[in-house]
Design a protein around this nucleic acid. Structure first.
Length: 428
DNA sequence: CTATAACTCTCAA
DNA sequence: CTAACGTTGAGAGTTATAG
């Protein structure tokens, strides 16, 4: 249970994906490394060397290919299994430092540090940092403050080495005057919750720094923007409005969508993709012990290719009865696909969504009993796939997936997740 | 007209 | 040789629709 007056620490791994790749290959020390999104599409992580070259986050890989070659940048496809495994290890270590921890994303967590003041919060932060470095070889930064939004900002300062942070920044120990001058120097766009759209609007009103937003009139912020931004203002003043969420609530919707490795034209290939995605989504659904009451299928051509005919369509089907059975969900999904498929287009992406989700135990079975749902079969399916790897046991409709599967031309070995990925020792 | 549903926009990692 | 541009989830706000 979080303490009544919490002190938040935000611990965030530096360049997480890129650092994971470097970890298992000493030759990459000092080498610029990028990690690419699914399909080797965009740059989603950059090592410090790449950031120094001025390569922006999110840029399509093909656009910087030449530049990358010039600078000897090494690119990796996303190796999600590796990052998830390293993430789990990081979170296990972090959990040793506080009974109250919220895993916020794959590379960051909020910790409640109330009660550790006697050690010195900054000192405690340094211990966290050192232990993760020593045990896992990963660099993290720690931001400490009285609200989540401020802890995020403190983390930003730690990363940018503002206020002599050196990896740890504790706002709770800073004087009001020092805070003022620090927040004066930080762009309002750095604030958690201020994104692409909000930043220019704030700028137009003369709110350009974090300090200006903090000192803005909360009521007029609410009137002109939203309750969300008003909450941000209060958080910036040190009033905690966002609580630590230790247990992740069950998802209200579950999505699985992916771009294809190559354009897809045939219904059959699309069908394989949709069946695979629905399988994956159903697996997630069963993991949280829920049922879905509606299925959406979405297909689209590339939004970037202006010369080809464009088409996109999504249809949602409310189910006669909520279910978590892959076979039933696949049947509904393929029914939708048949309805929305138009021949003659170069499809770039497909996706499925499960919604109208409810806990299995709250579900009222229909009068005539579940229509073909086989809970035991699904449990067996999940057990086999978790033991032998995802996709070991599949629906027939999923096919072998050659045409549409995503490109991963720069995949690193599964260092921590597969025996074959272990680095070998050369005899000499 | 109101209450709700459906959809759109924004943000984040 | 050319073309090539991520995924998932939440929540607020707005618009459409039913009664």
């Amino acid at each position: 249970m979080p303490t009544p007056v919490p002190i938040f620490a935000l611990v965030d791994c530096n360049n997480f994906y890129a650092s994971c790749e470097k970890l298992f290959n000493p030759k990459l020390a000092g080498v610029p490394v990028v990690v690419l999104s699914n399909n080797d599409g965009c740059v989603v992580a950059r090592s410090a060397e790449v950031k120094a070259l001025g390569i922006p986050m999110g840029v399509p890989w093909f656009k910087i290919h030449d530049q990358a070659r010039q600078h000897g940048i090494v690119a990796f496809s996303s190796n999600y299994a590796l990052y998830a495994d390293m993430s789990n290890r990081v979170m296990e270590v972090l959990a040793q430092f506080s009974p109250d921890i919220e895993v916020y994303s794959i590379d960051e967590s909020f910790l409640d540090l109330a009660g550790f003041e006697s050690i010195g919060l900054a000192e405690y932060g340094r211990q966290i940092r050192e232990r993760i470095q020593q045990w896992l070889g990963l660099a993290v930064c720690v931001g400490i403050a009285r609200s989540k939004t401020l802890a995020k900002l403190a983390n930003h300062c730690a990363k940018k080495n503002l206020a002599g942070a050196n990896g740890v920044c504790d706002f709770t120990a800073m004087s009001a005057a020092d805070m003022d001058s620090l927040l004066d120097r930080i762009d309002v766009a750095e604030v958690w919750g201020v994104g692409r759209k909000l930043a220019p609007r704030l700028d137009a009103m003369g709110i350009r720094t974090v300090r200006a937003l903090r000192d803005a009139d909360a009521n007029s912020v609410r009137a002109r923007f939203s309750v969300v931004l008003e909450r941000t203002v209060r958080e910036l003043r040190g009033t905690s409005c966002l609580a630590l969420e230790e247990v992740a609530p069950a998802k209200q919707q579950i999505i699985c969508s992916r771009s294809f490795g190559q354009r897809v034209h045939d219904f059959d290939d699309l069908q394989e993709a949709v069946a695979s995605y629905i399988s994956r989504a159903a697996e997630k659904l069963r993991q949280q012990d829920s049922l879905a009451g509606a299925v959406t299928v979405h297909i689209q051509t590339s939004p970037f290719n202006l010369s080809e005919p464009r088409y996109q369509k999504a249809v949602t089907l409310p189910l006669p009865e909520a279910t978590a059975d892959s076979r039933l969900l696949a049947r509904w999904a393929l029914l939708i696909l048949k309805q929305i498929y138009r021949p003659g287009f170069a499809y770039q992406k497909a996706g499925v969504m499960l919604s109208d989700i409810c806990p299995r135990r709250m579900h009222q079975p229909s009068l005539f009993g579940a229509l073909g749902e086989n809970e035991r079969l699904m449990r067996t399916l999940d057990r086999i796939n978790s033991r032998w790897g995802r996709g070991t046991l599949r629906l027939a409709a999923e096919g072998m997936g050659k045409e549409w599967q995503m490109k991963r031309g720069h995949l690193s070995p599964g260092y921590t997740t597969e025996w074959a990925g272990l680095p070998t020792v050369q005899a000499r």
